[in-house]
Write a protein that binds this DNA or RNA. Structure first.
Lengths: 225, 225
DNA sequence: TACAATTGTTAGATTAGTCTAACTTTATTT
DNA sequence: AAATAAAGTTAGACTAATCTAACAATTGTA
């Protein structure tokens, strides 16, 4: 049984690893920033996690989850995303509210509870942000890594997720009618700064590259022809 | 904002106070037993709770909740019982399983969540054990204090709650078809040890006084005549 | 390659919540 | 009322998780 704190460390290592699949290196400072703690604190805990065989780690080396650690991490992510789905689907929370609450709920200890919740929700595969929900074995589907800024002008795509999970970003997206499964047409794009004109639900908006690179999309062409 | 631990202390003081309305005295040892801690530990925390104006307490004196402390306590009880109701009604847990899970869920911090949960459940007034659910102001209905051992022979009553919330007791009750709102007829009672023959859903059982005094009931006669 | 910048580590202090062991006060019993 | 039992308190130690400040190793660059 892990402590609340240990769970958060494993989850952060998992997220950092998966946010940049090209570089599986996780460093002390990086983890400190992610967890909002000081590097010295991290160092301290890394020893404990290594002791418990949850991570592989050598002094001045990189941090990686062991198989056990990884299983715990996906377990927490599974719980987090199922609770988000519950809050969104059943209690009517908006997608910018669910993350913070799920941060608390993900630490509830009960396999039975989480399996019942999963069933109650109809075995969802994705959470309200389009992130995949791991199954009880820790497996999850790979999602599109294509972002809206990569879609060529005059093509249409479908929104399938978001890279940024902050409430600010999510509320902004909401205000542009952008939600999961929404169809987006790229009208034009400035060569200089990639400022993009998009059409969403009959309305057009101008959005920055900072914004477009945080929207995950799927091509829609094949479904049209 | 209270810590997990502080919440548990307040909740225990609340429960001890309400379990014996004739004697509102709560002592250090008593609280220690209730929380599964040592008296010395309790003493330590009492100082902190007093400091925070959550309890009234003088050295060697009795412990009582302040108005603020009481409001926090009923808030926790409200959350506990709403979560129990959710687990029972929506996720299909049995009434002997819900308490332990609610012990964790009751500490989730979000007024909005609990109000949404309340609405989702249809504003229940009682939890799966028949205990009243306080409203957002901390008010709750008073329930019957009459127990099955007080029902005269050949009278019929309706089960409205349980005094003992242990899984062992609840499973035993379940095995006798005893659940909330069930009608119970008292067939006979031994004068010596109050061993009682009851009829439940067409079947008869012999139960001890230890058992009958843990079943809260309401008279049914007035509804019959 | 050597220096500077970045990154990581160590030592020691702090806080919350717990414990044990010894002691004090209050309550009960003869 | 005195002796005993029960209840409550204090002092001091421990663990988990954090911090700051000082130091060490690695990396990147001139």
């Amino acid at each position: 049984m892990l402590t609340f704190t240990e769970e958060n460390y494993l989850k952060s290592i998992f997220h950092i690893t998966h946010q940049k699949p090209e570089d599986p290196h996780v460093g002390t400072n990086e983890l400190a920033v992610h967890l909002g703690l000081k590097p010295a604190t991290i160092n301290n805990m890394l020893k404990k996690l290594k002791e418990k065989k949850l991570i592989d780690y050598e002094k001045y080396g990189k941090i990686t989850l062991t198989e056990t650690g990884s299983l715990f991490a996906t377990g927490i992510v599974r719980k987090h995303r199922l609770w988000e789905t519950f809050l969104f689907e059943k209690l009517g929370f908006s997608w910018d509210e669910v993350h913070e609450l799920a941060e608390q709920l993900e630490h509830i200890q009960s396999d039975k509870l989480i399996e019942r919740l999963d069933r109650f929700l109809g075995g969802p595969k994705f959470d309200p942000h389009g992130d995949p929900i791991p199954n009880a074995r820790g497996e999850f589907e790979k999602t599109s890594e294509k972002t809206l800024d990569e879609i060529p002008v005059s093509k249409t795509c479908r929104m399938v997720g978001v890279k940024d999970n902050s409430a600010t970003f999510l509320k902004y997206a909401d205000s542009l009618n952008l939600h999961l499964h929404q169809t987006i047409r790229v009208h034009s794009r400035q060569e200089y700064d990639a400022l993009t004109h998009i059409e969403v639900a009959g309305k057009t908006y101008t959005v920055s590259q900072k914004f477009t690179e945080n929207i995950f999309v799927e091509d829609l062409e094949e479904n049209v022809g």
